[in-house]
Design a protein around this nucleic acid. Structure first.
Lengths: 229, 229
DNA sequence: AGTCGTATGTTGGTATACCATACGACAGCG
DNA sequence: CGCTGTCGTATGGTATACCAACATACGACT
């Protein structure tokens, strides 16, 4: 019967909702995260219409969404700009990440079964590979995937939403910190340590390793962004 | 010079930005939080246009914003509905709150000066008053103000954004837990305890009291919402 | 050289139209 | 009587045109 239910569930056709708006949202978000639009740059609605090939309605709704996500700021009577990031904000973001990620990691270490560990191992291997190739975007993807699995396995989906959103706000910073970290020894070593403690189902140690990893990233970010921006 | 800057800042005329959209956003948010629109209820765009007296564009942009805030869900091919909340989500939200609020409280206890303490004391008095009057919305406002001061004083403005957003998602739950808590003894006593430790500038104890307060609220919420909804 | 008006560009806001889809009612058929 | 197919309506998704308010830059005038 359970098998039957699974089959029936597999039957379900789920169209990619893929409304124009969601595509545009995704493109815009990527454009901002990747730095194609620079922080502080004005986002002129009608220009974006041309660039994305959609109407103003769509653009405006997308901007509303990005505004709520914190990627876009509204200047009164001047319209939207790409959100700027100062060290004070970045510092807080790393602090929140340390809190949420370490909790997720701890719960993951409590709950992780063989399947989760296998998936984490695979993400770790990807990280090693991209790290050896010194490919910052690849490192970032692999690291993100590693944490995605952790949050999913620990059932912290809301925290994952928050962390994802925060990460997109410090995306440029992350690319730089990760490539810096990979050049120094620390890079994947810290992630591997987190994995090791999850593998041993040791929540406390895993959480501590995670906190250490995030604060290390924050320290690198601080030298890059500087407390006096 | 710092005084000069403060004076200059005070000079600034800040128009209530009060674009129609922001007014509509505020109204809609309140309507959802207050329960005027029930969870799962469909939000028909053209109906909302009539009810708020604005055009569809405005409504749609507001819905985008609320969607990003997590107050509204989009059903594919069926349009927006008021977000539903199950215990699994609520549990996570309380967990995240415990993490972020306790950190803010600890930092507040580290940094609090006389002025902050005075403001906190005032919020606490408001809480006592509304609590004696057994006015759940008043209690909620006073509690919110208490925490707002804490986050502001500790410089955790990003965490405050997150917590505010999370709180609006569990607003109905909060009203119920707070009124329940006020009926039992625990109500303002726990908040008072947090204040006491901040007053003594004891970060660890304040954070512990805060965690206790949130988990107590979560326990009440659990009995109300039930893990099997 | 400095000041003032104006022209232009941009946003906020609104109305309207069109299309695709989902859903329900209704009619026709077995 | 029940099933099925068709059609109309409600709704969301998208595009477009228009207007008012405002900011900024530029140029003319004093």
């Amino acid at each position: 019967m359970s098998k039957n239910a699974a089959n029936l569930a597999a039957l379900r056709i789920n169209n990619p909702p893929a409304t124009l708006r969601e595509i545009a949202l995704d493109r815009m978000r990527r454009a901002i995260i990747s730095g194609l639009f620079e922080p502080g740059e004005r986002l002129v609605e009608r220009t974006l219409c041309d660039q994305l090939g959609v109407s103003r309605s769509v653009i405006r709704e997308v901007i509303r969404h990005l505004e709520a996500e914190g990627l876009v700021e509204m200047l009164a009577k001047q319209g939207p700009i790409v959100a700027r990031l100062d060290w004070n904000d970045a510092r807080q973001i790393y602090d929140i990440r340390a809190a949420l990620e370490s909790r997720a990691v701890a719960d993951c270490a409590r709950l992780a079964d063989a399947q989760v560990k296998t998936r984490l191992k695979k993400a770790l291997d990807d990280l090693d590979r991209t790290s050896r190739q010194n490919s910052p975007p690849g490192i970032l993807d692999a690291t993100t995937e590693f944490y995605r699995i952790i949050f999913e396995a620990s059932g912290h989906n809301i925290a994952w939403d928050i962390v994802s959103r925060l990460n997109s706000r410090i995306s440029r910073l992350r690319v730089m910190t990760l490539s810096t970290a990979s050049r120094t020894v620390s890079g994947p070593a810290q992630i591997r340590e987190i994995f090791a403690f999850i593998d041993k189902n040791d929540p406390e140690a895993a959480a501590a390793a995670c906190r250490q990893h995030v604060t290390a990233a924050a320290r690198i970010a601080e030298t890059l962004l500087g407390p006096t921006e």
